[in-house]
């Protein structure tokens, strides 16, 4: 009778989801209106810090897809421009930067109308903001559905985190938002790194 658990177990698993979904929100989000909180490891569009960048070109040399090109903005001032259409978001440029001038942000909505727009100029990269918090786009919702309220579900119950425990220390791994490696508040590199 090895067949019976093969049939009953998945049925039980799906039924649990159905019953659970009655009292709390499902695992998915309403994407264009509601955006997920991104993990701190998320690699989206690059962000350039103009004051830290020296125009050394280390990012350009480290790029495996050769999509970073150094652009002459002013005499004695070069800054990287990135062809997002070729970029594979590996983050090597961020690692290679000796002055911590480049970061990956949580910006993943990169659709544009033409290929030319895919080449991000240094000025554009400097204006990129890093938003990783979950948020609700109420403006878009109002444009589509007017004054109707956004469907609300009871929030997820606060449960003790089930993160994997570190074998050595016995402590739970930090949650994504707690680890603090979002580009904006990254610690200043130590002297020895240079």
């Amino acid at each position: 009778m090895g067949v019976v658990p093969l049939i009953t177990r998945p049925l039980w698993a799906t039924l649990k989801y159905l019953v659970r979904g009655l009292r709390r929100r499902p695992a998915t989000v309403l994407y264009p209106f509601e955006k997920m909180r991104l993990p701190c490891q998320w690699r989206g569009l690059h962000q350039l810090n103009d004051e830290k960048c020296t125009g050394c070109g280390a990012c350009s040399r480290s790029c495996p897809n050769m999509c970073i090109e150094m652009v002459q903005l002013a005499p004695k001032k070069k800054r990287p421009s990135i062809d997002i259409g070729r970029c594979l978001f590996c983050g090597y440029c961020v690692d290679a930067c000796p002055f911590d001038a480049m970061h990956m942000t949580g910006n993943y909505e990169l659709a544009v109308w033409s290929r030319d727009e895919l080449v991000m100029s240094p000025e554009r990269l400097m204006k990129v903001e890093d938003v990783r918090e979950g948020r609700i786009d109420e403006e878009l919702w109002k444009r589509v559905y007017g004054d109707e309220p956004i469907p609300e579900y009871p929030p997820l119950p606060e449960k003790p985190s089930k993160g994997k425990k570190n074998v050595a220390t016995g402590q739970e791994a930090p949650k994504a938002a707690e680890c603090g490696f979002t580009g904006a508040d990254k610690a200043v590199p130590k002297e020895g790194d240079k």
Binding site: L18, R20, P26, A27, T28, L30, G146
Partner: peptide, 22 residues
């Protein structure tokens, strides 16, 4: 709708204003 709920997701949500929104 039911298969969405059984898979822990919201299924099809398309509705017109006032008629079966969500």
């Amino acid at each position: 709708k039911l298969i969405g709920r059984l898979a822990d997701r919201r299924a099809t949500m398309l509705g017109i204003r006032g008629i079966g929104k969500g």
